[in-house]
C-alpha cells in the first residue's frame, strides 16, 4: 500500500512516501514559484525512484501553507496535527512538539495518548522564524546553513530584544559597527528565537518529552539555546524537516486502512 504526505511550506515542500506503513522515500525541495506543476514533477520523480507512478498512490494528504494547491488530494490537515502525529512516531513519548518553520512557529502540547490538547501558532510576522534567522545571517555575511556552527563559537552572546525581520537588519549592522563579533550577534539572535519559542512552549505546559521539528531544528545553536531557555532536554529527530510530511503520510495511511476495514 503506497501513500504520500506532502508538506507545502512557503520555502520548502517536503514529501514522505510510506509503503505499508514504513517510510519508503522522502524528499525536500524548494517551493519556488512553479506551484503545483513543480510539486507534481517532484512527486513523479520520487515515485519513479520507487518504481511506481501517481496512479499507485492510494491516498495523498497535504498540509502546510500551500496544502490546497496540490491536486488531487484526499484530505488536508493542519501542520499542527501533522507535526504532532509525525513527532509522536519518531519520538514516542513526545508531549511538547515545537515546529520551527520558515515563516511560522507552531507549538503543540499533546496528551498522554498523543492527541493535540492545545496549541499556539505565531505566523502573523516573521519574528523568530527560520526566515528571520536566514535574513540576519545573510546580513552578517554568513551562509544560513553555517549560522548554527558560527553561533556556537560565540564567547559573549549579545542580548537582543527586537526580532523584527525588517528592522533587525539595521540593528545588526549597527551592532557590527560597534565592533561586536558575528558569532556573538548570531548567538544573541538564536537566544532571542529560543526565548520566544520557549515562552510559547511554557504557556502550554512544556511537558517532557520536548521535541523540536522543522527546518530550523537543523541549527545546532538553536537546539542548545532552547534547552537552556526551557531548562530541559530537547530531542531532535534525525530528519526534523520532514516530520510534518511524515505525519500527513501517516494520516493518509490510516485513511486507506479505514476505507479497507
Amino acid at each position: 500500500m503506497l501513500v504520500c504526505g506532502v508538506d507545502v511550506g512557503c520555502m520548502f515542500t517536503k514529501f514522505v512516501i510510506l509503503r505499508d506503513g514504513e517510510v519508503a522515500a522522502q524528499h525536500i525541495m524548494e517551493s519556488g514559484v512553479d506551484g503545483a506543476a513543480g510539486v507534481d514533477e517532484a512527486l513523479a520523480q520520487l515515485l519513479a525512484s520507487l518504481g511506481a507512478t501517481r496512479a499507485d498512490l492510494q491516498a495523498v494528504v497535504t498540509c502546510g501553507l500551500g496544502r490546497r494547491s496540490v491536486e488531487p488530494f484526499d484530505k488536508v490537515v493542519s501542520e499542527v496535527s501533522a507535526c504532532a502525529g509525525g513527532a509522536r512516531v519518531v519520538c514516542p513519548g513526545a508531549r511538547t512538539v515545537m515546529d520551527l518553520g520558515a515563516h511560522g512557529i507552531r507549538v503543540a502540547a499533546l496528551d498522554e495518548r498523543g492527541r493535540v490538547a492545545s496549541f499556539d501558532i505565531s505566523d502573523k510576522c516573521a519574528s523568530g522564524t527560520g526566515c528571520f534567522l536566514d535574513i540576519m545571517s545573510r546580513a552578517l555575511g554568513v551562509e544560513p546553513l553555517e549560522a548554527g556552527k558560527v553561533a556556537l563559537c560565540a564567547k559573549n552572546p549579545e542580548h537582543i530584544e527586537s526580532m523584527c525581520a525588517v528592522f533587525g537588519e539595521s540593528e545588526v549592522v549597527s551592532l557590527v559597527a560597534r565592533g561586536k563579533s558575528r558569532e556573538d550577534i548570531l548567538a544573541g539572535l538564536v537566544d532571542a528565537v529560543a526565548r520566544r519559542v520557549a515562552s510559547m512552549a511554557k504557556r502550554l505546559g512544556g511537558q517532557q518529552e520536548v521535541v523540536l521539528v522543522g527546518g530550523v531544528a537543523k541549527n545546532p545553536a538553536v537546539v542548545t539555546a532552547l534547552e537552556r531557555a526551557l531548562g530541559s532536554p530537547v530531542r531532535v529527530p534525525d530528519e526534523p524537516q520532514t516530520v510534518g510530511a511524515l505525519g500527513a503520510a501517516l494520516i493518509a495511511h490510516s485513511l486507506v486502512g479505514s476505507k479497507a476495514g
Binding site: V76, V77, S78, E79, S81, R115, V116, A117, F119, I121
Partner: peptide, 23 residues
Amino acid sequence: EDTEQLRTRVEAFVEMLSARKLE
C-alpha cells in the same frame, strides 16, 4: 488579509476537537 492565518488556526482547532470527539 489574515484569512489564511485564521484558517490555519481554525482548522487545527477543529481537527483537535474532532480527534477528541472520536474517542
